[in-house]
């Protein structure tokens, strides 16, 4: 895993601090070419891994990578699934079963398809596998060193105590896709305990890590202690706490933190990407 990973929130109008900024981003990245241009800037600056949700628009990013294999020979994507709002909005309108029917590929009603059987017999692991396959489809022929489960899904399963599904997910990613399964969470200490109990050693986890303890459930002290124990490989996200901490101060904290393997950040301009990368490199050395 590279030290610096590039995120995608800015492309999809995700801004945890301002709805107004969200809209400005939605306008800036209306066309896929604007996304691809920023990703080129990222690649040229020496960051070669893009961590992104399985948003529909990522499909065009993947098309671009496949069309220019030489240019992007070292370009890697870490997919994070699912793009939760797609499902959440669908559930409000269609209900849970209606949503599954909409998003599981093939004729779900057909009793002899894998999906039809899984739904009819309440085979939840098979359903999970079908949904994973559907989300991963767009990344065909692209280097994906790891595949992550989004925090809403990880934390929902964690809260519900459906630990077996979390473990089954990890096993499926490893067996079928032969890559590292990862989990995004807002509850690192709790998740790590559950994964270890499920037999997953040294898991790959992406979680909020920042100086002010923003979205670090269980508290910053417990997080720091957990990191020191080196029981998991950690990607730090939300290191700027949605912009609440000045960049230098934020990076000084996270770069010196023992137990953080990689740092994830997003930016909309070349200068911002270059500055942040230089700062992380300098503070990490």
């Amino acid at each position: 895993m590279e030290r610096i990973l590039f995120g995608d929130n800015q492309f999809f109008a995700v801004n945890h601090l301002s709805d107004e900024k969200s809209r400005a981003q939605a306008i800036k990245f209306k066309d896929n070419s604007a996304i691809i241009k920023v990703l080129d800037d990222m690649y040229d600056s020496g960051i070669h891994t893009f961590m992104c949700t399985t948003h529909d628009r990522i499909a065009s990013v993947c098309d671009n990578l496949r069309s220019n294999p030489e240019k992007y020979s070292d370009f890697k994507i870490i997919p994070c699934m699912p793009y939760a709002h797609k499902y959440a909005n669908a559930v409000t309108e269609l209900g849970i079963i209606g949503t599954l029917k909409q998003y599981i590929p093939g004729n779900i009603i057909g009793a002899f398809t894998k999906g039809g059987l899984a739904l009819a017999t309440n085979d939840y692991v098979s359903l999970m596998e079908l949904l994973v396959d559907a989300e991963i489809k767009m990344f065909k022929c692209i280097q994906t060193p790891a595949i992550f489960l989004q925090n809403v899904m990880t934390d929902l399963l964690l809260g519900l105590g459906m630990n077996d599904i979390l473990v089954a997910y990890a096993k499926y990613i490893k067996d079928k896709y032969k890559v590292d399964p990862g989990f995004i969470t807002m509850n690192l200490p709790l998740l790590l305990d559950v994964l270890e109990k499920g037999g997953i050693e040294n898991p790959l986890i992406c979680c909020s890590i920042n100086k002010i303890g923003f979205r670090m459930s269980g508290g910053i002290e417990l997080y720091e202690r957990t990191l020191k124990e080196k029981r998991c490989r950690v990607i730090a996200m939300q290191v700027f706490a949605a912009g609440a901490i000045p960049p230098k101060e934020a990076l000084e904290y996270v770069c010196k933190l023992d137990g953080v393997q990689s740092i994830l950040f997003g930016a909309s301009s070349k200068s911002h990407i270059v500055q942040t990368k230089e700062l992380i490199d300098k503070l990490s050395s």
Binding site: M186, G213, F214, G243
Partner: peptide, 12 residues
Amino acid sequence: YVTDLTEPVDFY
């Protein structure tokens, strides 16, 4: 900002 005004929770 919400970051200045939000109390942390035990489970998020």
